[in-house]
């Protein structure tokens, strides 16, 4: 049962494990006091604050001054922002399907009572723990450098994959695909929940392996695919470390690795252009929320819920 499944069930209005029983407002308030404070000061409060700041000019030193829709007008003509949106979109659209495809493929291979499952699962999972670290980004910088590991193995001389604007983003896409282990583990857990008797019943009725896969595995796994898809898209939109380290904080060469978050960082914390950075943050929220909403809407057509 995932957080997203839970949200969908709540939207459908089923009461589920919540509700009923006697009220305990006082105790609940005590137990939730830290969480309420966090909501107010750390999450919801700042979201509201950044909405207001989005309509100001603010450099942290002088007090913010309202400038109406200037920040949003500026977005329309900000070529680097458009570049950042393009780079991020390519990164998400290419790397997420590849990553999930690898995850699902491996999960299916590993599912059928294979010996050494624990070993394989660990080996494939480990990169997703290391992938977001600065150390691996440092390593990537060497591997795809002009005299890096890839060129040594392939016997190519002097081609810098990271210093070439045409290939730099692809090295980061490879890095994201490399971390397919986490969604793979989720797929494995999902596959294990499909009752064996479904397959046995289908086999008795004469269904072949392919038919079983198409009419049992795929529909019953679709909620997990949906969950992974929503999560990995949101996750990919937030990639920062790899691009930052690989490009030395610039998003180069020629802004080819300028992730949205990296551009936001440059505006906010490089130039202390806090008003514009807030507007950018809101645009990011709207984009991610929009894509997630579309995902939830599209789920009606392909995700099967058996409850």
């Amino acid at each position: 049962m995932s957080a997203i499944g839970e949200l969908q069930r709540m939207r459908k209005g089923s009461r589920g494990p919540l509700g009923g029983g006697r009220r305990d407002n006082k105790a609940a308030f005590v137990f939730l006091a830290p969480w309420f404070a966090g909501l107010l000061f750390i999450t919801a409060g700042p979201i509201a604050a950044s909405f207001v700041l989005g309509f100001t000019d603010y450099n942290l030193i002088q007090p913010p001054t309202f400038n109406g829709l200037d920040n949003f007008a500026r977005m329309l003509t900000d070529a680097r922002l458009h570049k950042a949106l393009g780079v991020t979109l390519i990164y998400v659209v290419v790397s997420v399907p590849l990553q999930l495809g690898a995850a699902l493929g491996l999960a299916l291979l590993l599912d059928k009572g294979l010996r050494g499952l624990a070993f394989y699962r660990s080996a494939f999972y480990l990169p997703s723990l290391l992938g977001s670290s600065v150390a691996v980004a440092v390593l990537w910088r060497q591997i795809f450098g002009a005299d890096g590991l890839i060129n040594q193995l392939l016997g190519i001389e002097g081609r810098g994959w990271i210093s070439d604007p045409d290939t730099a983003l692809w090295t980061l896409i490879i890095l994201n695909v490399w971390t397919f282990g986490a969604p793979m583990v989720i797929f494995l857990a999902g596959l294990r929940q499909i009752p064996r008797m479904y397959y046995e019943a289908a086999a008795t009725d004469g269904a072949g392996k392919w038919t079983q896969f198409r009419s049992i595995t795929i529909p019953l796994l679709s909620p997990i695919v949906f969950f992974n898809l929503v999560l990995q898209i949101i996750h990919a939109f937030q990639s920062f470390t790899q691009a930052f380290v690989v490009s030395g904080g610039t998003g180069g060469p020629s802004d080819s690795t300028l992730f949205y978050t990296l551009y936001l960082y440059q505006r906010g914390f490089g130039n202390f252009d806090m008003g514009y950075a807030s507007a950018l943050a809101w645009l990011l929220l709207v984009i991610i929320a929009g894509i997630t909403a579309v995902n939830f809407w599209a789920a009606k057509f392909w995700v099967v819920y058996d409850d």
């Binding site: 999450t43 999560l231 937030q238 943050a281 991610i288």
Partner: peptide, 9 residues
């Protein structure tokens, strides 16, 4: 699901 980048400023 809230990205930290939205609230960091």
């Amino acid at each position: 699901m809230l990205p930290i980048h939205v609230i960091i400023v």
